[in-house]
Design a binder for these strands. Structure first.
Lengths: 341, 341
DNA sequence: TCGCATCGCTAATCCGATTTAGCAAAGGGA
DNA sequence: TCCCTTTGCTAAATCGGATTAGCGATGCGA
C-alpha cells in the first residue's frame, strides 16, 4: 500500500521544532501559548507539504472525544422512510466534522446491548436511539449522552426526544378537506372513527385521530386496518363502499391510500372527482399513483437532523431533562383533493 | 453520569496481578505465555465482576486495527433499495464484531475525499465504495483495503467489485415468458429493442438487454424511457398500445411496470389475462400493485453481505486483483404472468 | 548590576491498551 | 554443589497525539 502515514513527530522534525510546538500550532493554540508567527508559518507549511492529518484514534484516546456518534435503531436503517432520517443525521453530523456509526438491533434487546457496548467501547460522544415507528422504548442504563429519535422513553429517563408532530398533522389533514368544503361524508380508512379504533401500539394512529377530531370535522365513519398495508386498505375500502358513498377519505397512511385507490377504481369512482383523498407519510408511492396523492409528510430528513442537533445541544447542557421536540409535518398538496361540489 | 470506565489497570489491581498479565489473559494469550490456570481464573473472575471491557480506541491505537469498516456511497444510504444493502453489510460486519461508519458523498468528489479522509483518520480497517446504480467509478488513490459495491472501477484499479448479475437476470426474465409459452408478441418497456436503445449510463439496461436477447426470445419491439419512473412507463406503454397489441411486456424495472399497469388498465387490457408482465428489481411496490408483479430481484441484502465478506477475504489476501463477484438475481414468481393462450 | 517578568519554546507525562525483553524462583542433570 | 532450563510473571517501551510544567534568554526597572 502507500507509505506510512505522516505523524506529528514527522511534522515536527520537518519543521525543525518539538512535537509540542507542532501540536500547539496544529490545534490552533499557538497564539494563546506564544508561538512566534515565524515558527507557526513554518509548521503550517510543513504540514501542508507533508499532507499531515492527525490520527483521530490517538486524539480520541488522549482527549476522550472521538467526534463520532452512534446511531442505533430497531430497524430504521433499512426502511425506505428511514433512509432520509439517516441522511439528515449524516449531514448534520458532517457539518460539524462528526461521523456516524450505524447499528440495527432488530428489536432484540440483547443485540441492542451489544451494539451500545460496541459503540461505547469505541468512545462515541453520543448516541441516537431511533425507532422505526413512533413508539415508547425502555432506555438502557448508563447510556451516556443520548437522544431518542421517533420514540419516547417509557419510564421517564430524562433523555430528550425528537418526534413528528402527529397531532398537528391530523389537524392539517382535516383542514385540507375542510378548506375544500368537505364538512361531512368524510370517512377514515386505517383507524377510527373513535380513539379506540386503532391498530395496536400505534402512537401515530392515536395522535393523527386526535388532531383530526380536534378540528371539528364531522366524521361519518371509519374502518380499522390491522396493518397499514395496501391490501388492507383495499379490503376495508371495499367493505366501506358496500354500504356507503363517501365524498372524502382520510387514509391513515399512503400505503392504505394506495389500496383505497384500487377499491375506488373498482367501484367506478374517480379521484378526486367523486371522492377526495388525503393521507399521511408522503411515501414515494404518493407521487407515483394516479392522481398524485395529497398527503401530510413525515419529515424524516428533518427528524434526523434535529436528533443530531439536539444531541449537540444536550452535550452542551442546553437541553431540559426529558424535553420533547416535535417536528412539524408539512402538507404536500397534490391532485387527490377537489372542492366539494 | 456513571462512574469512570473500568480499565485494564483497575482489573490488574483487583486481580492482584500486573497489567501485562491481565492483558495476556484477556486477549487469550495466557496459555501460550504460561500464565498459571489459577491466576488466569482470578483475572477472568475479576473481569467479570468489574464488567471490564477493553477500550477499543486504545486497542486501535496500539494495534492499528479498529474493527471498523467505512461504507461510502454516492447516495445509496438513503435510497430504499440501498437500505437492504446496508443491512446486509451491517449484519455481516456484526457477525465478526465490526462496526460500520456510513458516509454519503452525493456524487461530489470533494465530499467523497473528505469522507474517505475522515474514515482513514479513524483508522478504518477497510472501505466499501458503493454506488446507487450499477456504474463505473474512479477510485481514489491510496485508499487502502477496499471493495466496490454495485460498481466497477473505471481505470482498472485492482480492487474487487461486487455487482448484481444483470445478464443472468435478463435471461431469467426472458425464460419466465418462454416457459409460459410467450415466444412472440413480446415488447420491451424502458429500453430496447436493440442494445443502442438504452437510457444514458445505465449498465443495468445494457446487461439486462443482453441477457434477454441471448435466450433467443423474439422481441417484437421496445420503447426507451429517458428515466425509469412510473410516469414514463405510463407514457411509453400508452404510445405502444396505440399501434400494437402485445401479449407480454418486459419492463426494465418495477417503477416502469407500475406505469405500464396504469396504461394497460386504461386500454381495458387485463394483467395477466390479456398481457403478461415481467420486470426487474423487486421494489416493494411490486407486491403492492394488483396483480402482484413477477420480477427479477436485485439482491440488495446479499450484495451488502458479499461486500463485507469480500473485504475480509481481501484483507486476508485471498482475492485476485480486480476480481469481479456477480451476485445472482432471483426470480420472484407472482401473479403477472399467465400461459400464452 | 541585580532581580523579576515576559517571551518562546520544549521535556516529560498521560490516555489505555499490547507486546517485547527479561527477571526471579523452581526443577533437573552431572 | 553448580549450572542450565523451564516456569510464571512483570517492567518498560510503544502507538500518536494533547497537555502541564518549566527552562533559558531577553527586556526592564531600580
Amino acid at each position: 500500500m502507500s507509505r506510512r502515514r505522516v505523524t506529528l513527530a514527522d511534522l515536527a522534525e520537518a519543521a525543525g521544532v518539538s512535537r509540542t510546538t507542532a501540536s500547539l500550532v496544529m490545534t490552533g493554540r499557538g497564539r494563546e501559548l506564544r508561538i512566534s508567527h515565524d515558527v507557526e508559518q513554518r509548521v503550517l507549511r510543513a504540514a501542508d507539504e507533508l499532507g499531515y492529518r492527525p490520527n483521530a484514534v490517538s486524539v480520541g484516546l488522549r482527549t476522550g472525544t472521538t467526534r463520532t456518534i452512534g446511531f442505533v435503531s430497531d430497524t430504521v436503517a433499512t426502511s425506505r422512510l428511514a433512509g432520509d432520517m439517516i441522511k439528515g443525521a449524516l449531514e448534520a453530523a458532517r457539518e460539524r466534522g462528526f461521523m456516524l456509526f450505524i447499528g440495527e438491533s432488530e428489536g432484540d434487546p440483547e443485540l441492542e446491548r451489544g451494539l451500545l457496548h460496541a459503540m461505547q467501547d469505541r468512545q462515541v460522544d453520543g448516541i441516537i436511539l431511533a425507532a422505526m415507528f413512533t413508539r415508547t422504548i425502555k432506555v438502557p442504563k448508563d447510556i451516556g449522552p443520548a437522544v431518542l429519535l421517533n420514540a419516547l422513553p417509557r419510564p421517564a429517563s430524562g433523555l430528550p426526544s425528537i418526534v413528528p408532530d402527529e397531532i398537528e398533522a391530523g389537524r392539517s389533514a382535516a383542514r385540507v378537506l375542510l378548506d375544500a368544503g368537505h364538512h361531512d361524508e368524510v370517512y377514515l380508512i386505517g383507524a377510527g372513527p373513535t380513539l379506540n379504533d386503532v391498530p395496536a401500539d400505534s402512537v401515530a394512529a392515536v395522535e393523527r385521530l386526535i388532531g383530526i377530531r380536534e378540528t371539528g370535522l364531522r366524521i361519518a365513519g371509519g374502518r380499522v386496518c390491522a396493518d397499514w398495508q395496501p391490501e388492507h386498505g383495499l379490503a376495508e375500502t371495499r367493505a366501506l363502499l358496500a354500504d356507503h358513498r363517501p365524498r372524502a377519505l382520510i387514509c391513515l397512511n399512503d400505503r392504505v391510500a394506495m389500496g383505497a385507490y384500487q377499491a375506488l377504481g373498482e367501484a367506478g369512482l374517480s379521484v378526486p372527482g367523486d371522492v377526495s383523498v388525503v393521507s399521511f407519510d408522503d411515501h414515494p408511492i404518493a407521487s407515483w399513483i394516479q392522481p398524485k396523492l395529497t398527503t401530510v409528510a413525515l419529515p424524516h430528513y428533518e427528524l434526523g437532523r434535529q436528533a443530531v442537533e439536539v444531541l449537540f445541544a444536550q452535550m452542551a447542557g442546553e437541553v431540559e431533562p426529558g424535553q420533547v421536540f416535535r417536528v412539524s409535518m408539512p402538507v404536500r398538496h397534490r391532485e387527490s383533493v377537489a372542492p366539494r361540489s
